[in-house]
Design a protein around this nucleic acid. Structure first.
Lengths: 194, 194, 194, 194
DNA sequence: AATGAATGAGGATTCATTCAT
DNA sequence: AATGAATGAATCCTCATTCAT
């Protein structure tokens, strides 16, 4: 029997956990429910994960990595600032659309249990922040954008990114990532003055 | 027994709940702990609130109202767009600074229990969104700002507002609300092109 | 309502625990069963004891103390050796008869959980051993008994004490403590030679 | 596959069980741990033993038999009483010294699971008791020892035997079986009067 | 009105045992 | 015969809620 054709048991637990955790949140998710969703017995989860906490942590880790991978920012550095923002935002919106439930956990679940996971999550946020700040600094140096507080601009850009989650994931608003990214980038670049 | 006594008891429960909920989150907060923090017996909470959920909901409601009141947006409508944004953002940042723990609950806790509360919270968000959209529409009509998708601009502005929470509440960054709001408003108005 | 007339709740839990633990042993005893035996709810036990382990430990402690108190060895020091042994053995046998289930826990349950409790139980055993050794040393000094290894004599005497548990508690042998103690003491004093 | 291979596998399970059971006691011993100690798979134990209980029982049976065999009481009947007691006690002490962990199980673990095993263990105890009583009766008949309650003397002797377990197995006291047996026998024979 | 002792539903986790390979 | 992945019954413990005082 070809195992590769069937989801490995660990993978199906992760998939089930992803679904249940992102729908119910960490506390209201029941291990039993995850097991049922994975089509396995309760005890089997503990063959692959030592605890509910650890399962959640691993799922978070995978999810966040999947987000970064989805951005696919290989040679983004060579592009002009405008393109960069546009590409990043497009990817971000795409990710929201494709991972409605998941993205809640990834971008909004602050009430995480483990101190360790909390720190890790904060570090990730700061890293993202730093990356954006760097991009901005480069572009200021390039003369692409006018001199301004890079940290504050980074907040503006990343806050804008984040703000799309609720309309997409909760209100099920239909958004075209490409067009939306274009418009937002235009506003950021040119402002809103007539 | 006069009413002021009774009122103060309910208020002290709310104050205690505010403190405990915002520090530990809904799930990790214990009714006992809230009672102790309020200096009353466990059972007494149930004289004033029918359940943990309802207590949380009421506290959320109060907190969000306190936020709106803190913005003090009475005659904001008569001001030019720039001032409006600046005032709103200043107030918002001020609120973060003065209510670090609380603001997490108010702006970030999505993992709320009751379906009812969830809907209410979503409605609030949409109202805010709508309010901002309206302001934008007015200002476009006024000619204060150029014609652009008001919904997307609203996302940009409100996302920017929200993005300051983590640095202030988690990273304890020191931010001057006034100056910060000025810079951000300038970017929104004029863009970042050289 | 006069509380003193009713067993305090804690006492009834201890009594119930005593019964269940001594019948089933620590591992096979169920908290629920103890609660039922105490005529209370499961959760109530945890109002008085932090865990199953701690409940067991406290019961052991009480039981062993009750044994020592039952011996009532106040002014035993002034009696001749023969009387002392006889009185101690009589008391010991009496205790077995009156506390069949309990005595198993007190004298035989080696498979105890907590390292702490184990150490405490071992210390008690050694103390008993020491006490007996001292009595023997005194009596040798008195010339009441001939010079011999006091440690080994202590083992003999205390082993003899212990050996009555199984016949009394398990086989339900009927034994008259007074007469039995007399006979045993006679053997110890005079030996078995014709 | 020859039988010697199979036999060695069963033996290695027994050896592993012996080790784990005597170190941790029945309840805290894990089948997995026994399997690992035996160098085999968990499931394999069930090829040779129907359950944890049955494995324990078989190990107990073997252990107790090994104890009796270790006493090597072939033609002990022809010896005088003094020698018999001395030889039995020497062997007993020797067994304690050589089987510190095991002897706990064999002589002290009352908290056994199966009713069946409990009965078997009790029967063994009574048999030992009876054997000793018989020896005593013979010796009284012989005129080797004076007439006295044989049952009580048996308790004294066997209790003395048992009392050495704790000092040897727990306190790691160093004891010379031969000398110790001699002294104890002397006390039993001649008493402790000056 | 206020209390806190009592409750028991609910849930994470363990581990002996099974069974497909 | 040997295995170990899978299972789910069993159990401790928590904590929101109740209610007698």
């Amino acid at each position: 029997m070809d195992k590769s054709h069937r989801k490995s048991k660990k993978e199906s637990i992760i998939a089930a956990g992803l679904q249940v955790f992102s729908q119910k949140g960490f506390h209201d998710a029941r291990m039993e429910e995850i097991a049922v969703a994975a089509g396995i017995g309760k005890g089997t989860i503990y063959e692959y994960f030592s605890s509910k906490s650890q399962l959640f942590q691993e799922i978070m880790s995978i999810s966040i990595n999947s987000y970064y991978e989805s951005l696919d920012i290989k040679n983004i550095n060579e592009l002009p600032f405008k393109e960069r923002i546009q590409i990043l935002l497009t990817g971000h919106l795409q990710y929201y659309i494709e991972n409605k439930d998941l993205s809640r956990m990834v971008f909004w679940d602050v009430e995480i249990m483990d101190e360790e996971l909390k720190e890790w999550s904060n570090k990730l946020r700061k890293d993202k922040q730093l990356l954006m700040t760097e991009i901005i600094n480069q572009s200021i140096a390039n003369g692409e954008i006018r001199p301004l507080n890079p940290r504050l601009l980074a907040y503006l850009i990343m806050g804008t990114f984040t703000s799309f989650w609720a309309p997409i994931a909760i209100d099920a608003e239909i958004i075209d990532p490409e067009t939306t990214a274009e418009i937002i980038t235009d506003i950021i670049l040119n402002g809103i003055q007539p």
